Every structure is written in C-alpha cells, then in structure tokens.
Computed example of a mutant assay.
Amino acid sequence: MTTTESEGVSLGMPQLPPPDYPADVRARLEADARDVIARYPDSRSALLPLLHLVQSEEGYVTRTGMRFCAEQLGLTTAEVTAVATFYTMYRRKPSGDYQVGVCTNTLCAVMGGDAIFEALQEHLGVANGGTTEDGKVTLEHIECNAACDYAPVVMVNWEFFDNQTPASAKRLVDDLRAGARVEPTRGAPLCTFKETARILAGFPDERPGAVEATGGAGPASLIGLRLARGETPPARVVHPRAGGPEGAQPHEPSLGEHLSSHDAPQKTSASDPANPAGPVGGAREEGE
C-alpha cells in the first residue's frame, strides 16, 4: 500500500493514489531533485524548492508532484501537503501562463490599485484567482511587494510593472494574451509561470538578458541610500504652505542638517511660523 493510500485509510477517506510521472519525466525530475537536495545539510530544507520544481512541470502542484517530493525527501504526503497549501506561491489548480497580480495594499490601493483590479476583472471577465478561457492569464490581488515608491504596481510572474493605470494594465494583459513581447519596467525579462517556477527552484536563468538584469531596485528606491552616502545634493526644503509667510525664502540645508521635519521633529511654531501653537500639555493646563 502506498503512502497516500495508507494515509487515506487512516483518515477514513480511502482514495486512489495519484498517477506517477512518465518514466522520462520522472528520471529528469529525479536528477534535478538530487541537485537541489545536495545544496542543503538537511534534506527537509529542500522541500520549498522541490515544490517549485514540480510546479514548473505542470504549472501547479499536483498530487503527483507532492508524492514525488515526499518520496525524494522521506516525508509523508501529509507533511508535504501542509506546506504546499500554506504558501500562496504554490498553485493548487491549473492556472494561466501569466500570473497577473495587482497590489491592493494601502499605498497602491489609494494610488489606484483598487481601480486597476476592478477594471481588469471586468476586462478579462474573471474574478479574483480566475483564469481566462484561453489559459493565458490568471488574475489575483496580491500583498505588498516592497515597491511602494512606484505605486500602483502590477506584477506578472513576479516581475514589476510600475506606475500602472487601468488603461495601461488593460493593454498589458491584452499583449500577454496576444503573445506580444512585453517588457517589465525593471528587472529580468518576462517568462512564463512554468519557467519562473524553475528559476525559483534554484536553477540558473540562462535566457538572453537575464544575467544582465539589474534586479528590482529602481532609482526611487535607492535615493535615500545615495543621500546618506552624500552621492547626490541634499533635497531643497521649501515652506510647507503655499507661499509661506511674507518674505519667506526656500532654505537650502547644509549636509549636517536634517532634510525634513520627519527626521527632526519640531514644535509647530518652529516648523510653521505662520501657524504658531503652544505645546499640547500647556493648552491642557490652561483649560484646567
């Protein structure tokens, strides 16, 4: 009796074991699995990349794939299933060649992420997690991917498409479905979800241009670091209210000064002479 069968019987839910991979596919996956497992002192640590490996074969983590991972690592299928169902990066059903994720966390949402997501649902005729009939695009809303300085952000197979609008996002998915060449705004060239899964399993991306890709940090993400290193002139601080008090002039801070009131909190009367106010504690005492 296989592991899957024994677990099913113990749970009172007997079921047929999943079909195995064809012999040639299994041989190839076993060779790749040995490569992955050899990277870790404890074989169990290889479970996450192995799940990416089997996902690269069929586009999602099947029961066959989970049994394969269990056999390679000496785990039960229950242990593998627990991990595969916990992380959203592992798909549990067939999905599109392109996973289109719209960030709807706070900053992207207020900058238009919610509007983009609603527009794409209507444009593609799918709900959250749905796949278009041609099998090209799966749409979902995603959690923050640390690209708030480029909000609103759409990701396709985890590559960045920054500063999107409903119109540009519609063009993006139309191009994906039409097979047109689509370039992320930064990072590596776009590839299919299966190809992405193999890269996430830890195998090198040998496509032209992939090695030269600069990664995910763009100029807006690095400006703070450059300021800290003194690589660019400090920002010009202007009066916080339009025009400011009569005669007020923009102030150019020296390198030793703080660049904003967020860096060096001041009393209101000091930071905004046009609207002086005393400390909150003092106002409370006078009221009393």
Rank of each mutant, 00 (worst) to 15 (best):
E5A: 14
S6D: 12
S6A: 15
S10V: 01
S10Y: 00
S10W: 00
S10G: 06
S10A: 15
M13P: 00
Q15M: 14
L16T: 13
P17S: 14
Y21H: 05
P22D: 13
D24V: 11
R26H: 02
E30V: 11
I37H: 08
I37L: 14
Y40S: 06
Y40D: 06
P49T: 11
L51Y: 01
H52E: 12
H52K: 03
L53M: 08
E57V: 13
E58D: 15
R63P: 05
T64M: 04
G65E: 03
C69M: 08
E71V: 13
L73I: 12
A82G: 02
V83C: 08
F86C: 09
R91K: 13
R92P: 00
P94S: 04
G96M: 08
Q99G: 02
G101M: 14
L107R: 12
V110H: 03
F117S: 10
A119R: 06
L120Q: 05
G130M: 06
T132S: 08
T138F: 06
E143G: 15
C144Q: 09
N145A: 15
A146Y: 05
Y150W: 04
P152Y: 09
F161G: 12
N163I: 02
A169T: 07
R171I: 05
D174T: 14
L176C: 07
R177G: 02
A178M: 03
G179Q: 03
R186F: 10
P189M: 06
L190S: 10
K194L: 05
D205C: 12
R207I: 02
A210M: 09
A213Q: 01
A217L: 15
P219T: 00
P219A: 13
P219S: 06
P219E: 06
A220W: 00
L222K: 12
R226P: 00
A228I: 01
V237K: 14
R241T: 13
A242L: 04
P245Q: 05
G256S: 11
G256P: 00
S260T: 15
S261G: 13
K267P: 02
K267W: 05
S269L: 07
S271W: 03
G282H: 05
G282P: 00
E285P: 01
